[in-house]
Amino acid sequence: MNFYKIWLRNISVFFLICSSFVSFAVVAQVDTFQFDKAENQERFRNLSNELRCPMCQNTSLSGSSGGVAEDLRREIYLMIKEGQTDREIKDFMFERYGDFIFYKPRLTVGTIFLWVGPAFFLLIGGCVGFSVFRSAQSLTLKNKTLTDSDQNKIESLLTREEQNLKIKGKTS
């Protein structure tokens, strides 16, 4: 019984340590700046997740320890403190780093394909799929409903075959 209690305590301490590592790792880059309002903290977190680190290219500002990323996080922090809106902060970044800074690029002539492309391909796929479905359906329908002349042909063929069989039966 005693052994079981010690074991339980050890295992819970172990998991507690593990979970604390996990949470530290996740918020390490982002939470170096403190805000008085939780709402601003949230905005800061969202912005630094939505904006891409220019130097390292495949990480967000929040996930990068690169020099520029650090500076840009500080800039976002200062701008939020100054009372600037998300829109203003994004415009500031766009003027300096262009479309590249956004993970979600803005809708412009240059980026329209990124936005419309998937819908376009879905549409093409849908059209092809639909036409394949239609032609398959019309094929099966044709088989089921025969025209009168076809029906007559079949019947005449069948009766001829029957007669042939009868003749064969008589001769043998």
């Binding site: 130097m55 520029v68 500076d71 800039e75 300096r96 262009g98």
Partner: peptide, 13 residues
């Protein structure tokens, strides 16, 4: 030293 002018120039590094 702060990299602030670098941001205005759009410097990567």
């Amino acid at each position: 030293p702060s990299g602030r002018f670098g941001i205005d120039l759009g410097v990567y590094g």
